[in-house]
């Protein structure tokens, strides 16, 4: 079963993170590294990325065949996606346990969301 672990942040939690002493921030990064190694070794890691600051985001629209881009997230957006994991593990409880590890590692995280991934497979009906 594949799951995505979505890491959400918001300006307030981001400020909390930035205000942390460097040692605490470094410990968080090390915890991330350890989790990545654990998932890789177990053969459950499919992909992961931490995303750059939302101010660097581009909004993409296609209108009448023309690609139109805009800057940044919508002003009213409170939460932004800060990173994700795509993992392949036995069940959602395992994925939730990894989600909890992500939450522990990332002091600047507001919310972790675990969601099952859809497949192109189908049983007989």
């Amino acid at each position: 079963m594949q799951y995505v672990i979505l890491i959400y942040s918001n300006p307030a939690s981001r400020q909390t993170f930035d205000a942390l002493p460097p040692a605490r921030r470094k410990a968080g990064l090390n915890a991330f590294r350890a989790l990545n190694e654990q998932l890789t070794r177990s053969g459950e890691m499919l992909a992961t990325a931490l995303l750059a600051d939302p101010s660097l985001a581009k909004q993409v629209h296609v209108s009448h065949g023309q690609t139109v881009t805009g800057d940044g997230p919508f002003a009213e957006a409170k939460e932004h996606l800060a990173g994700f994991y795509l993992i392949d593990c036995d069940d959602i409880d395992t994925a939730i346990a990894y989600g909890a590890q992500v939450h522990e590692a990332a002091a600047g995280v507001d919310l972790i969301e675990v969601r099952p991934v859809m497949t192109f497979n189908a049983d007989e009906m």
């Binding site: 859809m118 497949t119 192109f120």
Partner: peptide, 9 residues
């Protein structure tokens, strides 16, 4: 459902 073909069906 987690199956895309099944969802379409």
């Amino acid at each position: 459902t987690l199956s895309i073909p099944e969802q379409l069906y």
